[in-house]
Amino acid sequence: MSGVFENKELFKSGHTACAGCAVATGFRHIMRAVGKDCVIVNATGCSEIFTSAYPKSAWEVPYVHCVFENAAPVAAGVVEALRAMGNDHTKVVVLAGDGASYDIGFGHLSGMLERGHDVLYISYDNEAYMNTGVQRSGATPWKAYTTTSQVGSKIRGKLQNKKPMTEIVAAHGIPYVASSTSAHYTDLEMKVKKALSIRGPKFLNVLCTCVPGWGTDPSLSIQYLKDAVDTHVWPLLEIENGYLKMNMKPEKKPVETYLKGQKRFKHLTPEDVSEIQKMVDERWEGWVWREKVDTERKKELGE
């Protein structure tokens, strides 16, 4: 392919993601920032299926997939092998969904982080097991409908809150943790590049719209992610060497802006929405408070 349509990207067209898949958009940004000198380790999930159906691959870089829950230790093995064989430069990057990261592979991810392998782990979080047809995960938000957090006469959506993964990962004391979305490409690419400039384990939590999973119009996949940030539902932040920094403090839009039009939330009552607003506000205030404390502490320590 040449001329106008020459595709020079490391993550190619022809993958079989759904129309409007924000994971695919995110991967384009991530790969632009990662560059050629890498190994991609993918967990089982949507992105593995839509990029690597034998014999066709959307990857222009070395790529390996093994099973659902072991992307972190496979990546650890890749990086230890490269370093043992004298390769000191190739970046090892995990791409894994929230099912693989928040749930089934959680312990193995924790082990990889604790041991300090030189791996960038990117969790693309679309807030449920989308590959198997939208089942709830630890990342599914409160009240959201999935096929295993059903809306019935007694129970109306997920009973539990979303797992605070960014904080849990940060609690490992690793050098770099950040959150972003597929829509905020400048932020996302900056974070991928920064993460890759740091030795040791790094974690990025990237929110991605899922058209069939969220029940949204495919054309709005980017808009919903912007709304998630603008409503303070999904803050863009970095925790570098333990210090929190909020990358964006948008003027808060009401949470309805984000919830409306998503079929997974269509059963919400006005009371549910105000409860969500309260939860979002409390979490946001928590982040703002922590940023303040961290900034002061950083100043005190002269770092």
Partner: peptide, 17 residues
């Protein structure tokens, strides 16, 4: 079951539209 890089370009997904 290994694949060659970038071969997804053979999938003309425009037919979905």
């Amino acid at each position: 079951a290994n694949g060659k890089p970038g071969t997804s370009m053979e999938n003309k997904t425009g037919s979905w539209r």
